[in-house]
């Protein structure tokens, strides 16, 4: 386990994530500048649609160079490094992917079924929660939440677009 804040801050440590992020932000800045130039910078009345984006792009490019240098030299301590406290890359990928997949399935399978699968994945696969706990949580989280929002609060959550599933109320 490594921490780089507090007392350790005196020992500079290069942050690879920081440098990569700075590079990414630099690219974002350049793309913004290019995009802004196409929008038109000035109009008869004043700043055009591209005026603010242009300056934001320039700020991003310059700031990313300075900040990237700080990260490279390890002058600025990371918030948290990979350690046992923080989620590892695999778990992060799994969580983000599960949300994206759930988002894509939401209007196909409907809210209840999608969230049921989503919760099963999180509780059983990611956290290995006992079935005794998993089952009620999954039911409340999918069917219960749907009932609460859809029926009581009139916030309509999607139902399935597959006729068979829709017919049984999912």
């Amino acid at each position: 386990m490594t921490t780089t804040t507090g007392a350790d801050a005196s020992a500079p440590q290069r942050s690879r994530l920081g440098v990569a992020t700075a590079a990414g932000i630099g690219v974002l800045g350049v793309a913004t500048v290019i995009g802004a130039l196409q929008l038109g910078l000035w109009t008869a009345l004043g700043p055009g649609p591209g005026f603010f984006p242009l300056w934001l792009g320039i700020i991003l490019v310059i700031a990313s160079v300075f900040w990237g240098r700080q990260q490279w030299r390890g002058e600025v301590a990371d918030a948290v490094d990979e350690g046992e406290e923080a989620n590892g890359p695999w778990r992060i990928t799994a969580m983000v992917a599960s949300i994206v997949i759930a988002a894509l399935l939401l209007e196909l399978l409907g809210f209840q079924l999608t969230i049921l699968l989503f919760l099963l994945f999180h509780l059983r696969v990611l956290h290995r929660v006992r079935w005794l706990v998993t089952v009620p949580v999954v039911l409340v989280g999918s069917l219960g939440v749907f009932g609460l929002f859809d029926m009581l609060l009139a916030v309509h959550l999607p139902t399935s677009s597959i006729p068979f599933l829709a017919a049984i109320g999912l």
């Binding site: 949300i99 999180h122 929660v129 989280g141 959550l157």
Partner: peptide, 24 residues
């Protein structure tokens, strides 16, 4: 327990983001 809380927070995050514009 954190896994359960975490699962519920995720569901709430999804409902919250979706319900603003009813948009995936």
């Amino acid at each position: 327990p954190f896994p359960v809380l975490c699962a519920f927070i995720l569901v709430f995050i999804m409902v919250g983001s979706y319900a603003v514009n009813r948009s995936v």
